[in-house]
């Protein structure tokens, strides 16, 4: 049974006519052309497919579009604003926090939610927040460094404005 779902993705209203059992992950990638959201297991066991729903990190492989109509969905494609990288993206670039890059979108979004809630997290808080995102390339070190750097820069920016 196909249903028409209206989603707010990265600030844009998007509609898709999809089977109701199609997950948000599948709809983003296959119907909306947003392939920035990756998948590593489709069972909620790796965190790769993380997107933000109303600012909270959730697993798009276990979310149904019909369940989140009306909510604000943010994918990695929606992080940069007006052609400017989000400070997290900038820090990931500068510090080499993306190696193969496959877990990167999910980690960036999870970190973005963390920094929205806790602008200057401790390293342990960053670890806790990212404990649901597996990365096989980096040993997490540069990822933690990059989140800390972004937090620092965002804090400074905040202080200036």
């Amino acid at each position: 049974m196909k249903v028409r779902v209206a989603l707010n993705v990265n600030g844009e209203s998007r509609e898709a006519l999809v089977p109701v059992h199609k997950t948000l992950l599948e709809v983003l990638r296959e119907d909306l052309g947003l392939t920035g959201t990756k998948h590593g297991c489709e069972l909620g066991e790796c965190g790769t497919c993380t997107v933000l729903v109303d600012g909270e990190p959730v697993l798009s492989c276990l979310a149904l579009p019909v369940e989140i109509e009306g909510a604000h969905i943010t994918t990695v494609e929606g992080m940069a604003e007006g052609g400017r990288l989000h400070p997290l993206q900038q820090a990931f670039v500068e510090l080499g926090a993306a190696q193969c890059g496959y877990c990167t979108p999910g980690i960036l979004l999870t970190a973005m939610a963390l920094l929205a809630e806790r602008p200057s997290p401790t390293r342990e808080e960053v670890r806790e927040a990212l404990a649901g995102n597996l990365c096989r390339c980096t040993g997490y070190t540069k990822i933690l460094d990059a989140v800390e750097l972004a937090a620092l820069r965002m804090g400074r920016q905040e202080a200036r404005t």
Binding site: V3, P19, V20, H21, K22, E26, E42, L64, V66
Partner: peptide, 12 residues
Amino acid sequence: MIRLPAFTYLAP
């Protein structure tokens, strides 16, 4: 990709 089987979704 592992996918869900088909079902009808009711949202009371």
